[in-house]
Amino acid sequence: MTNRDQVLEAVQQLPPIPVDACELVRLLQDPEVDPAELERAISLNPALTTHVLATANSAIFGARAEISTVRRAWLQLGSGRIQAAVMSAMVGPMACEPVEGYSLPGDALWEGALAIALATEELALKTGGPPPNEAFTAGLLVDIGKTVFGQVAQTKMSEIADLAFGGNISFEKAEEQLVGINHAEAGAIMLEAWGLPESIIQVVRWHHEPEMCPEEFRPIAELVHAAQYLCGMVGLGNGEDGNYYASSEAVFNRLGLSPDAIENCLCQTLSKLDLAREAFGLEKKS
């Protein structure tokens, strides 16, 4: 019998992410961060330094000359991009594994995450909402909870799918009903255990129910919610759950996106996806 406690236990057993990576994410969220401190913090972890520089030099950011120092990368790309690079180094290896339960082959979860991140950023640009870089980072981790939830609830997945599809219930609600927790909450608990900032944890926790998100983080939660809906609609990042998620009428009304804006958002997202894979994937970095 799969239940909430088993999911929580599995989260607790995950290997911790490097303390210096968590510290870095916290530093990068500080708008008045001292560049020297940032450079020192990143250089403590040579693998992370390599990853950040490889990301900074990838084609998606169109650097005209090679970026060879962390300080230069930060100045050129900004905190949001560096934060995304650090997070991709932290969770990329886990997110590139096949996700049991959801029947996602290797790389599919990560590709979906990149698509959602890109779409979130596009929506931020189109709606004049939160800073696009921050929106990108939030989108990147949105489904990380599926890794643990899918593994623990593997034997329960067909029952969850039957309940969702048969009863026309949003997939995360079916997860809740049958396991006592959904992948969004599992993801938030993972990120909390890793010591990541509240702004990211809350967005991940409430991406399917953005109206429940604390007000200060809600604008990004709403963008992530809309971005995931759009990506799922065209089949990006779908697994066993098959984009069976409800969307918030209120969020779409508030964002006021025209059909043209939506199609342009999807077009931009897909056009940048290959470059984003190269920038935030791991295959070309080792």
């Binding site: 065209v234 199609e263 999807l266 077009c267 897909l270």
Partner: peptide, 19 residues
Amino acid sequence: CMLPLSKGAREGSAPKPAM
């Protein structure tokens, strides 16, 4: 194919006509 019409949607993005 993902989207119906190329006009407008592709504005500002690299051309990928099979989209």
